[in-house]
Design a binder for these strands. Structure first.
Length: 548
RNA sequence: GUCCCGUUGGUCAAGUGGUCAAGACGUCGCCCUCUCACGGCGGAAUCAGGGGUUCGACUCCCCUACGGGAUACCA
Protein backbone atom coordinates (compact mmCIF):
# COMPACT_ATOMS: atom_id res chain seq x y z
CA UNK A 1 0.00 0.00 0.00
CA UNK A 2 1.29 3.37 -0.99
CA UNK A 3 0.39 5.56 1.98
CA UNK A 4 1.42 8.80 0.33
CA UNK A 5 -0.96 8.14 -2.51
CA UNK A 6 -3.71 7.21 -0.08
CA UNK A 7 -3.17 10.43 1.85
CA UNK A 8 -3.41 12.41 -1.36
CA UNK A 9 -6.56 10.57 -2.35
CA UNK A 10 -8.18 11.33 1.01
CA UNK A 11 -7.02 14.89 1.50
CA UNK A 12 -6.26 16.40 -1.91
CA UNK A 13 -7.16 19.88 -0.64
CA UNK A 14 -4.60 19.87 2.16
CA UNK A 15 -1.35 21.41 1.03
CA UNK A 16 0.14 22.50 4.34
CA UNK A 17 2.42 20.27 6.38
CA UNK A 18 2.89 19.93 10.14
CA UNK A 19 6.11 21.92 9.73
CA UNK A 20 4.08 24.85 8.42
CA UNK A 21 1.97 24.89 11.57
CA UNK A 22 5.01 24.36 13.69
CA UNK A 23 6.36 27.61 12.26
CA UNK A 24 3.04 29.40 12.55
CA UNK A 25 2.66 28.52 16.24
CA UNK A 26 6.17 28.68 17.65
CA UNK A 27 7.08 27.86 21.22
CA UNK A 28 5.84 30.53 23.58
CA UNK A 29 8.32 33.05 24.85
CA UNK A 30 7.77 32.53 28.54
CA UNK A 31 10.00 31.93 31.51
CA UNK A 32 10.76 28.25 31.95
CA UNK A 33 8.56 27.77 35.00
CA UNK A 34 5.55 29.48 33.43
CA UNK A 35 2.59 27.18 32.92
CA UNK A 36 0.16 27.37 30.05
CA UNK A 37 -3.32 26.10 30.80
CA UNK A 38 -6.62 26.20 29.09
CA UNK A 39 -10.29 25.74 29.65
CA UNK A 40 -12.06 23.88 26.89
CA UNK A 41 -15.78 23.90 27.52
CA UNK A 42 -18.27 22.70 24.99
CA UNK A 43 -20.80 25.42 24.33
CA UNK A 44 -23.76 23.98 26.17
CA UNK A 45 -24.05 27.11 28.25
CA UNK A 46 -24.50 25.56 31.63
CA UNK A 47 -21.75 25.90 34.17
CA UNK A 48 -21.86 24.54 37.64
CA UNK A 49 -19.67 24.68 40.65
CA UNK A 50 -17.78 21.61 39.50
CA UNK A 51 -16.71 23.35 36.31
CA UNK A 52 -15.56 26.36 38.26
CA UNK A 53 -13.64 24.07 40.58
CA UNK A 54 -11.67 22.67 37.66
CA UNK A 55 -11.22 25.98 35.91
CA UNK A 56 -9.88 27.45 39.08
CA UNK A 57 -6.99 24.99 39.01
CA UNK A 58 -6.09 26.12 35.50
CA UNK A 59 -6.29 29.73 36.45
CA UNK A 60 -4.14 29.43 39.57
CA UNK A 61 -1.54 27.32 37.86
CA UNK A 62 -1.12 29.77 35.03
CA UNK A 63 -1.32 33.06 36.86
CA UNK A 64 0.71 31.93 39.80
CA UNK A 65 3.60 31.03 37.52
CA UNK A 66 3.45 34.02 35.21
CA UNK A 67 2.00 31.86 32.48
CA UNK A 68 -1.04 32.01 30.24
CA UNK A 69 -4.60 30.86 30.74
CA UNK A 70 -6.72 30.71 27.63
CA UNK A 71 -10.24 29.80 26.58
CA UNK A 72 -10.85 27.43 23.73
CA UNK A 73 -14.35 26.49 22.72
CA UNK A 74 -14.71 22.80 21.96
CA UNK A 75 -17.56 22.89 19.53
CA UNK A 76 -16.87 19.73 17.59
CA UNK A 77 -20.33 18.42 18.35
CA UNK A 78 -22.75 20.79 16.70
CA UNK A 79 -25.74 18.90 18.06
CA UNK A 80 -25.05 20.04 21.58
CA UNK A 81 -24.55 23.66 20.84
CA UNK A 82 -26.70 26.17 22.67
CA UNK A 83 -27.27 29.74 21.54
CA UNK A 84 -25.49 32.33 23.68
CA UNK A 85 -23.59 29.69 25.60
CA UNK A 86 -20.17 31.16 25.02
CA UNK A 87 -21.21 34.52 26.46
CA UNK A 88 -22.77 32.78 29.44
CA UNK A 89 -19.63 30.80 30.11
CA UNK A 90 -17.34 33.78 29.89
CA UNK A 91 -19.49 36.02 32.02
CA UNK A 92 -20.01 33.43 34.76
CA UNK A 93 -16.35 32.66 34.98
CA UNK A 94 -15.40 36.30 34.97
CA UNK A 95 -17.87 37.04 37.70
CA UNK A 96 -16.09 34.51 39.87
CA UNK A 97 -12.76 36.07 39.14
CA UNK A 98 -11.42 33.82 36.43
CA UNK A 99 -9.70 35.97 33.85
CA UNK A 100 -8.54 34.62 30.52
CA UNK A 101 -5.41 36.01 28.93
CA UNK A 102 -6.09 34.68 25.52
CA UNK A 103 -8.59 32.90 23.32
CA UNK A 104 -12.29 33.41 22.90
CA UNK A 105 -13.73 36.57 24.42
CA UNK A 106 -17.10 38.29 24.29
CA UNK A 107 -15.85 40.47 21.47
CA UNK A 108 -13.98 37.93 19.39
CA UNK A 109 -10.72 36.12 19.61
CA UNK A 110 -7.41 37.36 20.86
CA UNK A 111 -4.01 35.71 20.81
CA UNK A 112 -1.75 34.31 18.16
CA UNK A 113 -2.41 30.62 18.67
CA UNK A 114 -5.94 30.68 17.25
CA UNK A 115 -8.44 30.06 15.93
CA UNK A 116 -9.78 29.12 19.34
CA UNK A 117 -13.01 27.62 18.14
CA UNK A 118 -12.29 24.05 17.16
CA UNK A 119 -14.72 24.12 14.27
CA UNK A 120 -12.55 26.77 12.65
CA UNK A 121 -9.47 24.58 12.86
CA UNK A 122 -10.64 21.94 10.46
CA UNK A 123 -7.77 22.40 8.03
CA UNK A 124 -5.22 22.04 10.82
CA UNK A 125 -6.63 18.78 12.06
CA UNK A 126 -6.84 17.43 8.54
CA UNK A 127 -3.25 18.33 7.89
CA UNK A 128 -2.13 16.22 10.82
CA UNK A 129 -4.57 13.52 9.81
CA UNK A 130 -3.06 13.46 6.37
CA UNK A 131 0.35 13.23 7.93
CA UNK A 132 -0.72 10.19 9.95
CA UNK A 133 -2.11 8.53 6.85
CA UNK A 134 1.20 9.10 5.11
CA UNK A 135 2.94 7.37 7.97
CA UNK A 136 0.51 4.47 7.75
CA UNK A 137 -0.91 5.31 11.16
CA UNK A 138 -4.42 6.23 10.09
CA UNK A 139 -6.84 4.83 7.57
CA UNK A 140 -10.32 5.49 6.21
CA UNK A 141 -13.14 3.33 7.52
CA UNK A 142 -16.29 2.94 5.46
CA UNK A 143 -18.20 0.79 7.91
CA UNK A 144 -21.80 1.78 8.47
CA UNK A 145 -23.42 2.10 11.85
CA UNK A 146 -25.10 -1.26 11.28
CA UNK A 147 -21.82 -2.97 10.54
CA UNK A 148 -20.26 -1.58 13.69
CA UNK A 149 -23.29 -2.73 15.66
CA UNK A 150 -22.88 -6.20 14.20
CA UNK A 151 -19.24 -6.35 15.22
CA UNK A 152 -20.14 -5.30 18.72
CA UNK A 153 -22.84 -7.93 18.93
CA UNK A 154 -20.36 -10.58 17.89
CA UNK A 155 -17.85 -9.43 20.48
CA UNK A 156 -20.37 -9.37 23.26
CA UNK A 157 -21.44 -12.91 22.43
CA UNK A 158 -17.89 -14.16 22.61
CA UNK A 159 -17.10 -12.07 25.66
CA UNK A 160 -14.37 -10.15 23.90
CA UNK A 161 -13.55 -6.49 24.35
CA UNK A 162 -15.98 -4.37 22.40
CA UNK A 163 -14.63 -1.94 19.86
CA UNK A 164 -13.04 -1.53 16.49
CA UNK A 165 -9.60 -3.08 16.56
CA UNK A 166 -7.38 -5.92 15.35
CA UNK A 167 -9.05 -8.42 13.10
CA UNK A 168 -12.46 -6.87 13.76
CA UNK A 169 -11.25 -3.76 11.98
CA UNK A 170 -12.35 -4.71 8.50
CA UNK A 171 -11.26 -1.50 6.84
CA UNK A 172 -7.81 -1.64 8.30
CA UNK A 173 -6.28 -3.47 5.40
CA UNK A 174 -8.52 -2.16 2.64
CA UNK A 175 -6.68 -2.16 -0.69
CA UNK A 176 -6.02 1.07 -2.52
CA UNK A 177 -8.47 0.17 -5.27
CA UNK A 178 -11.27 -0.53 -2.86
CA UNK A 179 -10.70 2.82 -1.16
CA UNK A 180 -10.71 4.57 -4.52
CA UNK A 181 -13.94 2.87 -5.55
CA UNK A 182 -15.62 3.80 -2.29
CA UNK A 183 -14.44 7.36 -2.56
CA UNK A 184 -15.59 7.67 -6.14
CA UNK A 185 -18.90 6.15 -5.18
CA UNK A 186 -19.24 8.96 -2.67
CA UNK A 187 -19.27 6.61 0.27
CA UNK A 188 -18.83 8.49 3.54
CA UNK A 189 -15.95 7.52 5.79
CA UNK A 190 -14.36 8.24 9.11
CA UNK A 191 -10.63 8.34 9.63
CA UNK A 192 -9.38 5.85 12.16
CA UNK A 193 -6.16 5.53 14.08
CA UNK A 194 -4.19 2.40 13.24
CA UNK A 195 -3.30 1.31 16.75
CA UNK A 196 -0.16 -0.62 17.39
CA UNK A 197 -0.79 -0.89 21.10
CA UNK A 198 -1.06 -4.04 23.12
CA UNK A 199 -3.52 -4.03 26.02
CA UNK A 200 -1.40 -6.61 27.79
CA UNK A 201 1.37 -4.05 28.06
CA UNK A 202 1.25 -1.16 30.49
CA UNK A 203 2.78 2.25 30.18
CA UNK A 204 3.74 4.56 33.04
CA UNK A 205 2.85 8.18 33.40
CA UNK A 206 3.04 10.79 36.15
CA UNK A 207 -0.17 12.65 36.76
CA UNK A 208 0.16 16.10 38.33
CA UNK A 209 -2.45 15.27 40.92
CA UNK A 210 -2.43 11.52 41.23
CA UNK A 211 1.25 10.87 40.87
CA UNK A 212 2.44 7.64 39.37
CA UNK A 213 -0.06 5.88 37.10
CA UNK A 214 0.24 2.63 35.24
CA UNK A 215 -2.27 1.96 32.50
CA UNK A 216 -2.72 -0.53 29.69
CA UNK A 217 -1.85 0.63 26.20
CA UNK A 218 -4.61 1.68 23.89
CA UNK A 219 -5.47 -0.93 21.28
CA UNK A 220 -8.59 0.60 19.78
CA UNK A 221 -8.62 2.04 16.30
CA UNK A 222 -10.40 5.12 17.58
CA UNK A 223 -12.07 7.60 15.28
CA UNK A 224 -9.90 10.64 14.57
CA UNK A 225 -12.08 12.46 12.09
CA UNK A 226 -15.81 12.02 11.91
CA UNK A 227 -17.65 11.69 8.63
CA UNK A 228 -18.03 15.44 8.43
CA UNK A 229 -14.28 15.91 8.63
CA UNK A 230 -14.46 17.34 12.17
CA UNK A 231 -12.20 15.68 14.72
CA UNK A 232 -13.31 13.80 17.79
CA UNK A 233 -12.30 15.18 21.17
CA UNK A 234 -9.32 12.86 21.33
CA UNK A 235 -7.70 14.06 18.16
CA UNK A 236 -8.59 17.70 18.66
CA UNK A 237 -7.17 17.67 22.17
CA UNK A 238 -3.83 16.33 21.02
CA UNK A 239 -3.42 18.70 18.11
CA UNK A 240 -4.71 21.78 19.91
CA UNK A 241 -2.88 21.36 23.13
CA UNK A 242 0.31 20.78 21.26
CA UNK A 243 -0.04 23.68 18.85
CA UNK A 244 -1.34 26.03 21.50
CA UNK A 245 1.62 24.97 23.60
CA UNK A 246 -0.40 23.95 26.61
CA UNK A 247 1.92 22.74 29.34
CA UNK A 248 -0.69 21.45 31.82
CA UNK A 249 -3.89 19.74 30.80
CA UNK A 250 -6.30 20.01 33.71
CA UNK A 251 -9.49 18.00 33.26
CA UNK A 252 -11.95 15.88 35.16
CA UNK A 253 -11.20 12.34 36.14
CA UNK A 254 -13.77 11.05 33.67
CA UNK A 255 -10.97 11.48 31.13
CA UNK A 256 -8.61 9.16 32.89
CA UNK A 257 -9.82 6.14 31.02
CA UNK A 258 -9.16 7.72 27.65
CA UNK A 259 -5.67 8.79 28.62
CA UNK A 260 -4.14 5.77 26.82
CA UNK A 261 -5.68 6.98 23.58
CA UNK A 262 -4.19 10.42 24.00
CA UNK A 263 -0.78 9.11 24.89
CA UNK A 264 -0.84 6.84 21.84
CA UNK A 265 -1.75 9.77 19.62
CA UNK A 266 0.99 12.03 20.94
CA UNK A 267 3.31 9.13 20.38
CA UNK A 268 2.18 8.48 16.84
CA UNK A 269 2.59 12.15 15.99
CA UNK A 270 5.94 12.24 17.75
CA UNK A 271 4.84 15.16 19.88
CA UNK A 272 5.78 15.80 23.51
CA UNK A 273 3.18 15.04 26.16
CA UNK A 274 1.77 17.82 28.32
CA UNK A 275 1.51 17.24 32.06
CA UNK A 276 -1.90 15.80 32.79
CA UNK A 277 -3.75 16.79 35.93
CA UNK A 278 -6.89 14.78 36.47
CA UNK A 279 -9.08 16.44 39.06
CA UNK A 280 -11.75 14.71 41.06
CA UNK A 281 -15.32 15.58 40.37
CA UNK A 282 -17.36 17.49 42.87
CA UNK A 283 -19.96 15.24 44.38
CA UNK A 284 -23.27 15.71 46.00
CA UNK A 285 -25.09 13.64 48.56
CA UNK A 286 -28.14 11.89 47.26
CA UNK A 287 -29.85 9.75 49.83
CA UNK A 288 -27.23 7.38 51.11
CA UNK A 289 -24.52 7.84 48.53
CA UNK A 290 -22.38 10.33 46.76
CA UNK A 291 -23.08 11.36 43.21
CA UNK A 292 -21.30 13.40 40.64
CA UNK A 293 -22.76 16.84 40.12
CA UNK A 294 -25.02 16.87 37.14
CA UNK A 295 -26.32 19.64 34.97
CA UNK A 296 -29.79 18.24 34.78
CA UNK A 297 -30.36 17.22 38.34
CA UNK A 298 -28.65 19.97 40.27
CA UNK A 299 -29.78 23.37 39.10
CA UNK A 300 -29.08 24.67 42.60
CA UNK A 301 -25.42 24.05 41.98
CA UNK A 302 -25.29 26.12 38.83
CA UNK A 303 -23.11 29.16 39.06
CA UNK A 304 -26.04 31.37 38.28
CA UNK A 305 -27.71 30.13 41.43
CA UNK A 306 -24.88 31.32 43.66
CA UNK A 307 -24.75 34.52 41.79
CA UNK A 308 -28.45 35.16 42.17
CA UNK A 309 -28.33 34.33 45.87
CA UNK A 310 -25.63 36.95 46.08
CA UNK A 311 -22.66 34.95 47.24
CA UNK A 312 -19.58 37.08 46.92
CA UNK A 313 -17.21 35.77 44.26
CA UNK A 314 -14.38 35.96 46.77
CA UNK A 315 -16.25 33.68 49.12
CA UNK A 316 -16.86 31.12 46.43
CA UNK A 317 -13.24 31.28 45.33
CA UNK A 318 -12.02 30.96 48.86
CA UNK A 319 -14.30 28.01 49.51
CA UNK A 320 -13.09 26.32 46.36
CA UNK A 321 -9.54 26.85 47.42
CA UNK A 322 -10.20 25.20 50.76
CA UNK A 323 -11.44 22.04 49.12
CA UNK A 324 -8.89 22.24 46.34
CA UNK A 325 -5.78 22.45 48.48
CA UNK A 326 -5.86 20.84 51.87
CA UNK A 327 -3.32 23.23 53.36
CA UNK A 328 -5.16 26.37 52.34
CA UNK A 329 -7.12 26.75 55.56
CA UNK A 330 -4.00 26.61 57.64
CA UNK A 331 -2.42 29.22 55.46
CA UNK A 332 -5.48 31.44 55.73
CA UNK A 333 -5.44 31.16 59.51
CA UNK A 334 -1.82 32.24 59.56
CA UNK A 335 -2.36 35.00 56.98
CA UNK A 336 -5.83 36.39 57.65
CA UNK A 337 -5.29 39.56 55.67
CA UNK A 338 -3.29 38.42 52.68
CA UNK A 339 -4.98 38.22 49.30
CA UNK A 340 -5.69 34.61 48.42
CA UNK A 341 -3.50 34.97 45.36
CA UNK A 342 -0.49 34.88 47.65
CA UNK A 343 -1.20 31.31 48.59
CA UNK A 344 1.10 28.86 46.85
CA UNK A 345 -1.27 26.52 45.13
CA UNK A 346 0.04 23.11 44.10
CA UNK A 347 -1.54 20.21 42.27
CA UNK A 348 0.31 17.78 44.52
CA UNK A 349 -1.79 18.94 47.45
CA UNK A 350 -5.00 18.16 45.65
CA UNK A 351 -7.02 15.23 46.80
CA UNK A 352 -7.73 12.42 44.39
CA UNK A 353 -10.91 11.18 45.96
CA UNK A 354 -14.31 12.65 45.28
CA UNK A 355 -15.15 15.78 47.22
CA UNK A 356 -18.58 16.43 48.56
CA UNK A 357 -19.95 19.90 48.18
CA UNK A 358 -20.59 21.35 51.64
CA UNK A 359 -22.91 24.32 51.92
CA UNK A 360 -22.20 24.82 55.64
CA UNK A 361 -18.57 25.26 54.86
CA UNK A 362 -19.24 27.68 52.02
CA UNK A 363 -21.39 29.74 54.35
CA UNK A 364 -18.75 29.76 57.02
CA UNK A 365 -16.07 30.82 54.57
CA UNK A 366 -18.38 33.48 53.26
CA UNK A 367 -18.90 34.93 56.74
CA UNK A 368 -15.18 35.23 57.22
CA UNK A 369 -14.75 36.90 53.86
CA UNK A 370 -17.56 39.39 54.39
CA UNK A 371 -16.52 40.32 57.91
CA UNK A 372 -13.23 41.58 56.50
CA UNK A 373 -14.88 43.61 53.80
CA UNK A 374 -15.08 47.39 54.23
CA UNK A 375 -18.63 48.73 54.60
CA UNK A 376 -18.52 50.74 51.39
CA UNK A 377 -17.42 47.75 49.40
CA UNK A 378 -20.11 45.59 50.91
CA UNK A 379 -22.71 48.24 50.19
CA UNK A 380 -21.60 48.47 46.58
CA UNK A 381 -21.69 44.72 46.23
CA UNK A 382 -25.21 44.57 47.59
CA UNK A 383 -26.32 47.41 45.41
CA UNK A 384 -25.01 45.84 42.23
CA UNK A 385 -26.72 42.64 43.23
CA UNK A 386 -30.08 44.38 43.67
CA UNK A 387 -29.70 45.89 40.23
CA UNK A 388 -29.44 42.46 38.75
CA UNK A 389 -31.64 40.28 40.90
CA UNK A 390 -33.84 42.45 43.13
CA UNK A 391 -34.58 45.52 41.10
CA UNK A 392 -37.43 46.54 43.38
CA UNK A 393 -34.90 47.12 46.16
CA UNK A 394 -32.93 49.61 44.11
CA UNK A 395 -34.60 52.81 45.35
CA UNK A 396 -34.43 51.63 48.93
CA UNK A 397 -30.69 51.24 48.54
CA UNK A 398 -30.07 54.56 46.89
CA UNK A 399 -32.39 56.52 49.21
CA UNK A 400 -30.95 55.04 52.39
CA UNK A 401 -27.31 54.73 51.59
CA UNK A 402 -26.08 56.36 54.78
CA UNK A 403 -28.35 54.35 56.96
CA UNK A 404 -27.36 51.15 55.19
CA UNK A 405 -23.72 51.91 55.72
CA UNK A 406 -24.39 52.27 59.44
CA UNK A 407 -26.38 49.05 59.47
CA UNK A 408 -23.64 47.16 57.71
CA UNK A 409 -21.04 48.58 60.06
CA UNK A 410 -23.01 47.47 63.09
CA UNK A 411 -20.81 45.45 65.45
CA UNK A 412 -18.48 44.49 62.65
CA UNK A 413 -15.39 46.44 63.54
CA UNK A 414 -14.55 45.62 67.13
CA UNK A 415 -12.23 43.04 68.59
CA UNK A 416 -14.82 40.34 68.18
CA UNK A 417 -16.86 41.28 65.16
CA UNK A 418 -20.21 39.64 64.57
CA UNK A 419 -20.27 37.31 61.62
CA UNK A 420 -23.87 37.51 60.62
CA UNK A 421 -23.60 38.27 56.95
CA UNK A 422 -23.37 35.44 54.46
CA UNK A 423 -24.88 36.32 51.10
CA UNK A 424 -27.03 39.11 49.70
CA UNK A 425 -30.39 37.43 49.92
CA UNK A 426 -29.65 36.47 53.52
CA UNK A 427 -28.22 39.89 54.36
CA UNK A 428 -31.27 41.67 53.17
CA UNK A 429 -33.48 39.37 55.14
CA UNK A 430 -31.27 39.92 58.17
CA UNK A 431 -31.62 43.70 58.08
CA UNK A 432 -35.05 44.04 56.48
CA UNK A 433 -36.80 45.11 59.69
CA UNK A 434 -35.16 48.52 59.38
CA UNK A 435 -37.50 49.29 56.52
CA UNK A 436 -41.19 49.72 57.17
CA UNK A 437 -42.18 48.07 53.93
CA UNK A 438 -40.44 44.88 54.95
CA UNK A 439 -41.04 44.98 58.68
CA UNK A 440 -43.18 42.18 59.98
CA UNK A 441 -43.72 40.54 63.32
CA UNK A 442 -42.12 37.14 63.11
CA UNK A 443 -41.75 36.07 66.71
CA UNK A 444 -44.09 36.09 69.66
CA UNK A 445 -43.57 37.64 73.08
CA UNK A 446 -41.64 35.51 75.56
CA UNK A 447 -43.65 33.12 77.67
CA UNK A 448 -42.03 34.42 80.87
CA UNK A 449 -43.79 37.73 80.44
CA UNK A 450 -47.43 37.68 81.40
CA UNK A 451 -49.75 38.87 78.66
CA UNK A 452 -50.93 41.68 80.92
CA UNK A 453 -47.38 42.96 81.46
CA UNK A 454 -46.57 43.63 77.86
CA UNK A 455 -48.50 46.83 77.46
CA UNK A 456 -47.23 48.37 80.72
CA UNK A 457 -43.66 47.50 79.82
CA UNK A 458 -43.91 49.18 76.47
CA UNK A 459 -45.66 52.21 77.87
CA UNK A 460 -43.09 52.61 80.60
CA UNK A 461 -40.36 52.23 78.07
CA UNK A 462 -41.70 55.04 75.91
CA UNK A 463 -42.19 57.22 78.91
CA UNK A 464 -38.60 56.92 80.01
CA UNK A 465 -37.09 56.95 76.55
CA UNK A 466 -34.54 59.60 75.72
CA UNK A 467 -32.95 59.28 72.35
CA UNK A 468 -29.82 61.06 73.50
CA UNK A 469 -29.09 58.51 76.20
CA UNK A 470 -25.89 56.64 75.64
CA UNK A 471 -25.84 52.87 75.66
CA UNK A 472 -25.27 52.49 79.37
CA UNK A 473 -27.75 55.16 80.43
CA UNK A 474 -30.28 53.54 78.21
CA UNK A 475 -29.69 50.11 79.63
CA UNK A 476 -29.81 51.17 83.24
CA UNK A 477 -33.30 52.52 82.54
CA UNK A 478 -34.28 49.10 81.24
CA UNK A 479 -32.92 47.59 84.43
CA UNK A 480 -34.95 49.94 86.58
CA UNK A 481 -38.01 49.31 84.50
CA UNK A 482 -37.54 45.59 84.94
CA UNK A 483 -37.16 45.77 88.70
CA UNK A 484 -40.20 48.04 88.98
CA UNK A 485 -42.27 45.47 87.17
CA UNK A 486 -41.01 42.55 89.23
CA UNK A 487 -38.35 41.24 86.90
CA UNK A 488 -34.75 40.59 87.89
CA UNK A 489 -32.23 43.21 86.78
CA UNK A 490 -29.71 40.48 86.06
CA UNK A 491 -30.42 37.08 84.57
CA UNK A 492 -28.17 35.48 87.16
CA UNK A 493 -30.34 36.73 90.00
CA UNK A 494 -33.32 35.19 88.34
CA UNK A 495 -31.56 31.90 87.81
CA UNK A 496 -30.52 31.76 91.44
CA UNK A 497 -33.95 32.59 92.84
CA UNK A 498 -36.54 32.09 90.14
CA UNK A 499 -39.32 32.17 92.71
CA UNK A 500 -38.56 35.79 93.58
CA UNK A 501 -39.16 37.17 90.08
CA UNK A 502 -41.51 36.92 87.13
CA UNK A 503 -38.57 36.80 84.79
CA UNK A 504 -35.46 38.86 84.11
CA UNK A 505 -34.28 41.86 82.18
CA UNK A 506 -33.63 39.72 79.12
CA UNK A 507 -37.29 38.86 78.86
CA UNK A 508 -38.22 42.49 79.22
CA UNK A 509 -35.90 43.60 76.50
CA UNK A 510 -37.17 40.85 74.27
CA UNK A 511 -40.59 42.46 74.53
CA UNK A 512 -39.10 45.72 73.34
CA UNK A 513 -37.12 43.95 70.67
CA UNK A 514 -40.20 42.31 69.25
CA UNK A 515 -42.12 45.55 69.24
CA UNK A 516 -39.22 47.27 67.52
CA UNK A 517 -38.14 44.72 64.93
CA UNK A 518 -40.57 41.89 65.09
CA UNK A 519 -37.87 39.45 66.13
CA UNK A 520 -36.71 37.96 69.38
CA UNK A 521 -33.10 38.10 68.33
CA UNK A 522 -31.01 40.84 66.82
CA UNK A 523 -27.83 42.81 67.34
CA UNK A 524 -27.64 45.49 69.97
CA UNK A 525 -30.98 47.16 70.61
CA UNK A 526 -29.65 50.56 71.50
CA UNK A 527 -27.56 50.77 68.38
CA UNK A 528 -30.45 49.72 66.19
CA UNK A 529 -32.60 52.47 67.66
CA UNK A 530 -29.89 55.01 67.03
CA UNK A 531 -29.77 53.97 63.41
CA UNK A 532 -33.53 53.81 62.98
CA UNK A 533 -34.04 57.20 64.52
CA UNK A 534 -36.33 58.20 67.31
CA UNK A 535 -39.43 58.72 65.23
CA UNK A 536 -39.44 55.35 63.61
CA UNK A 537 -38.61 53.59 66.86
CA UNK A 538 -41.41 55.25 68.78
CA UNK A 539 -43.90 54.70 66.00
CA UNK A 540 -43.11 51.00 66.01
CA UNK A 541 -43.66 50.74 69.75
CA UNK A 542 -46.88 52.67 69.64
CA UNK A 543 -48.15 50.42 66.93
CA UNK A 544 -47.25 47.39 68.99
CA UNK A 545 -49.18 48.82 71.93
CA UNK A 546 -52.14 49.55 69.73
CA UNK A 547 -52.23 46.03 68.41
CA UNK A 548 -52.44 44.49 71.88
C1' G B 1 -19.62 -7.83 31.79
C1' U B 2 -14.64 -5.67 31.14
C1' C B 3 -11.14 -1.84 32.30
C1' C B 4 -9.51 2.46 35.21
C1' C B 5 -9.52 5.52 39.66
C1' G B 6 -10.63 5.92 44.67
C1' U B 7 -11.88 4.58 50.28
C1' U B 8 -8.92 8.35 57.60
C1' G B 9 -14.91 11.18 62.30
C1' G B 10 -21.48 13.59 59.56
C1' U B 11 -18.25 16.82 55.86
C1' C B 12 -13.25 18.77 54.01
C1' A B 13 -8.88 16.57 55.50
C1' A B 14 -3.27 16.26 57.75
C1' G B 15 -0.47 11.79 57.69
C1' U B 16 4.10 8.54 53.51
C1' G B 17 6.57 2.14 58.79
C1' G B 18 7.03 3.74 65.36
C1' U B 19 1.88 10.11 66.46
C1' C B 20 -2.05 9.78 73.01
C1' A B 21 -4.09 9.61 64.54
C1' A B 22 -3.41 17.34 63.43
C1' G B 23 -6.69 21.18 62.03
C1' A B 24 -11.36 23.27 59.92
C1' C B 25 -16.89 23.04 59.19
C1' G B 26 -20.98 20.89 61.51
C1' U B 27 -22.84 18.93 66.20
C1' C B 28 -23.28 18.74 71.76
C1' G B 29 -22.12 20.94 76.73
C1' C B 30 -20.23 24.94 79.73
C1' C B 31 -18.54 30.15 80.25
C1' C B 32 -19.29 35.29 78.64
C1' U B 33 -24.05 37.80 77.96
C1' C B 34 -30.44 42.08 77.81
C1' U B 35 -31.80 38.28 72.95
C1' C B 36 -29.17 36.31 68.86
C1' A B 37 -24.47 36.26 67.30
C1' C B 38 -19.12 36.85 68.27
C1' G B 39 -15.43 34.96 71.47
C1' G B 40 -13.34 31.33 75.12
C1' C B 41 -13.13 26.32 77.15
C1' G B 42 -14.45 21.33 76.72
C1' G B 43 -16.99 16.72 74.70
C1' A B 44 -18.70 12.99 71.25
C1' A B 45 -17.01 11.19 66.56
C1' U B 46 -12.42 8.46 61.89
C1' C B 47 -8.02 4.77 59.55
C1' A B 48 -14.17 -0.07 54.95
C1' G B 49 -13.25 -5.66 55.94
C1' G B 50 -9.88 -9.86 55.64
C1' G B 51 -5.18 -11.80 54.79
C1' G B 52 0.04 -11.17 54.33
C1' U B 53 5.35 -8.43 54.66
C1' U B 54 7.64 -6.46 59.23
C1' C B 55 10.10 -6.32 65.83
C1' G B 56 6.12 -2.76 64.49
C1' A B 57 1.34 -0.91 59.80
C1' C B 58 -3.40 4.45 58.49
C1' U B 59 1.19 4.15 55.81
C1' C B 60 3.90 -1.47 51.62
C1' C B 61 1.57 -6.12 48.85
C1' C B 62 -2.84 -9.30 47.75
C1' C B 63 -8.10 -10.38 48.01
C1' U B 64 -13.14 -8.80 49.11
C1' A B 65 -16.73 -5.00 49.76
C1' C B 66 -18.36 -0.26 48.69
C1' G B 67 -18.22 4.40 45.81
C1' G B 68 -17.07 6.85 41.30
C1' G B 69 -15.75 6.91 36.14
C1' A B 70 -15.04 4.85 31.19
C1' U B 71 -16.67 1.42 27.72
C1' A B 72 -19.70 6.70 21.11
C1' C B 73 -18.61 9.35 14.36
C1' C B 74 -20.43 13.36 23.09
C1' A B 75 -17.21 16.25 25.27
Amino acid sequence: MNYTALAEMLFPHIDKTPEDYEALYPKRQLPPEAKVTRLGPSPTGFIHLGNLYGAFVDERLAHQSGGTFFLRIEDTDEKREVEGAVEAIISSLEYFGLRFDEGVTIHGETGSYGPYYQRRREAIYQCYAKHLVEKGLAYPCFCTEEEIQAIRGQQEKKGENPGYYGHFAKCRELKSDAVRRNLEGGKPFVLRFRSTGDPARNFQIIDGIRGHLSMPENFQDVVLLKQNGIPTYHFAHVIDDYLMRTTHVVRGEEWLSSLPIHVALFDALELPLPIYCHTTVLMKMEGENKRKLSKRKDPELSLSYYRSQGYHPKAVREYLLTILNSNYEEWRLANPDSPMEDFGFTTEKMSSSGTLFDLDKLNDVSKEVLVRMPDEELYDFLFVWTQEYRRELGPLFTDNKNMLLRILAMDRHGEKPRKDLVYCEQIFDFISYFFDDYFKVEDSYPAEVAQGDIKPILEAYIKGYDHSDDASQWFSKIRTLSTDMGYAAKPKDYKKNPELYKGHVGHVSTVIRIALMGRASSPDLWEIQQIMGETRAMTRINKAIASL
